[in-house]
């Protein structure tokens, strides 16, 4: 039996920074300290006018290859999670294959998920590897939500940032499961609570603006995430004490603190990194792992529970061994 494992993670953030002082100038009812206190975010990175999620994805993958001396000829599958594709069609992952000069024998697909996307991606990578259909999967997450955000929309502008991550998931020599089975969840009744309504087939015209119903999203999260985590722990016959650390999707610090308390997770096991990059949607979990490995908050060999949740609604929980 082959077991899939996360081998390496790298990320890429665009150059432009939107910090709390800049936001306070736009929204004078909030000062920079209050924005920091309420969101837990100090700065966000914003893609340039002509810089797309595909560009960020290319850079994240190049960072991964360079930093860990990965032979791109060994990549045999590309999974790209994005809701900001360059085109309706073709699939951005195919363009990514070409731009990265990954062999044409590799499979490639996009999947459209938001904040739950990384956990879903790990599940697909695991499935491909453990059924011997692939050996080295490049899992990329990339978003440029800033392009969907109105300058005067405080509720989303203070939270979301752009960025991309690239993860190499590969067949390992380990004798036990390194990425657990995933617990999934979907509830499309909340489809219009976090949405870009215009631009696709249903409403072809109109501004491409992100709408977020914050209170309803918060309610969904409070109602669904603790139950999903408990169901996962029950299914895997685990307790909070058995797990070294928890990396939740870094939505905003306020929501995370409410979830942490409700899930009864000790503060010292709950990794928070959103101050450094904001809510980068599907990239927050890999960026948090990468950053926490550098700071020493996470270490190789630890068992880490990943919890993704958000737009859709969609959620997923799994357990990885670093």
């Amino acid at each position: 039996m082959v077991f899939a494992k996360i081998k390496h993670i790298a990320s890429f953030l665009p150059n432009d920074i939107l910090d709390n002082n800049m936001l306070a100038q736009t929204f004078p009812e909030w000062d920079a300290a209050k924005i920091s206190e309420k969101t837990g975010i100090n700065k966000r990175f914003i893609a340039g006018k002509n810089e797309t999620a595909l560009d960020l994805a290319i850079n994240a993958a190049k960072n991964l290859f360079t930093k860990y001396q990965i032979n791109k000829n060994e990549i045999d599958f590309i999974l790209l999670c994005t809701q900001s594709p360059d085109y309706f069609l073709p699939t951005s992952a195919c363009i990514l294959q070409n731009k990265l000069e990954i062999p044409t024998t590799a499979g490639a697909l996009d999947f459209n998920l938001g904040c739950s996307g990384y956990v879903y991606g790990l599940s697909m990578a695991k499935s491909l590897i453990e059924t011997n259909q692939a050996k080295n999967v490049l899992l990329v997450t990339s978003e440029t939500y800033s392009k969907y955000i109105k300058a005067d929309d405080k509720s989303v502008r203070t939270i979301f940032g752009d960025g991309a991550s690239a993860t190499l998931v590969a067949a390992s020599d380990d004798k036990s499961e390194q990425i657990s089975k995933t617990l999934f969840g979907s509830d499309g009744s909340g489809f219009d609570k976090l949405i870009v309504k215009n631009g696709a087939s249903k409403n072809a015209t109109g501004p491409h603006e992100l709408f977020m119903d914050g209170p309803e999203i918060f309610n969904f999260t409070l109602a669904s995430v603790p139950v999903a985590l408990q169901n996962f722990l029950n299914r895997e016959n685990l307790a909070i004490d058995d797990i070294d650390a928890f990396v939740f999707h870094q939505a905003n610090s306020f929501m995370l603190e409410a979830l942490r308390k409700k899930c009864k997770i000790p503060k010292e096991k709950f990794v928070l990194k959103l101050a450094e990059f904001g809510n980068t949607v599907s990239s927050t979990i890999p960026m948090t792992i990468e950053s926490a490995l550098v700071s020493g908050e996470l270490k190789a060999g630890q068992k880490v529970c990943l919890v993704g949740f958000g737009v859709g609604y969609s959620w997923a929980v799994n357990l990885i061994t670093l």
Binding site: G214, P215, F218, N219, L222, M255, A258
Partner: peptide, 19 residues
């Protein structure tokens, strides 16, 4: 509103409709 939702849940165990 979100802060109030969290408080009501924490202190009274109720999740209130945002609207």
């Amino acid at each position: 509103i979100i802060s109030t939702i969290a408080l009501l849940d924490e202190h009274f165990g109720v999740i209130v409709d945002g609207k």
